[in-house]
Design a protein around this nucleic acid. Sequence first.
DNA 1: TACACTATTGATAACGAATCTCATTACCGC
DNA 2: GCGGTAATGAGATTCGTTATCAATAGTGTA
Lengths: 127, 127
Amino acid sequence: MKRNTWQREAVRDALTDSEGFVSAQSLHGALRDAGSSIGLATVYRALADLAGAGDADSLQQDGESLFRACTPDSHHHHLICRECGTTVEIKADAVEQWAKNVATEHGFTQPHHIVDVFGLCPACSST
Amino acid sequence: MKRNTWQREAVRDALTDSEGFVSAQSLHGALRDAGSSIGLATVYRALADLAGAGDADSLQQDGESLFRACTPDSHHHHLICRECGTTVEIKADAVEQWAKNVATEHGFTQPHHIVDVFGLCPACSST
DNA sequence: TACACTATTGATAACGAATCTCATTACCGC
DNA sequence: GCGGTAATGAGATTCGTTATCAATAGTGTA
């Protein structure tokens, strides 16, 4: 049985309020700074749940996992500023198709793919 | 001044001999098993050098970095079996172009991208 | 070839992210 | 309310990676 707790909501809200990708650690820090007494382990659990449910995207950078709230149940990719973390969701049907083709071409089944584009956003480019 | 040591060569050779992506830890283990007295830190340093020089590709999975020897100075992506680690290098000019376009479209500069396709190779699919 | 300089090595400590443990808490159907 | 039990949280633990630093060994010079 799955229960609703204020902690899960807090994590979901904090994630939604964040710009770009954030780490579990910094999200936990932000929540504690805001006066919450939420535990680190709970933040990790909540984030894993969100990611599993498709309500959050995750990617790995520098050996840590970063998370971001995203449109539920829609497959998409990200354009991420490596300076400030600003993120733009991008559709890439052509890439989806390419990934599927290249996999079957080599006899691979059950293709998944990781496609992310990093760069400097307009704001960070100009500085 | 950069020096040539047998340790660097050992790491390079071990990486070349490996099928698919391997972790720094397992590469170190393999070298020790083969009778080498190479240190773990040295393996990490050598792998970082190889990756930096473009002689090896790296990707992150489950919070650890995996490495693989690859054709020097050629930009390409990988089709990786998530069961046995077998890897196929794939060219993806269309994706290169798409990544560049999508970045400039949103005003992003200096675009990099991560594109990897995971799946089950023919051998692992049939079991 | 011998020497000196210093990049490199390696054992280990330190670090940080993530997970596990388990007693306590509090959600939720009844 | 009440009781069963999922969820929590503080801290310990695991694991990958990096930093430290004395000892070693590669390399240009004489």
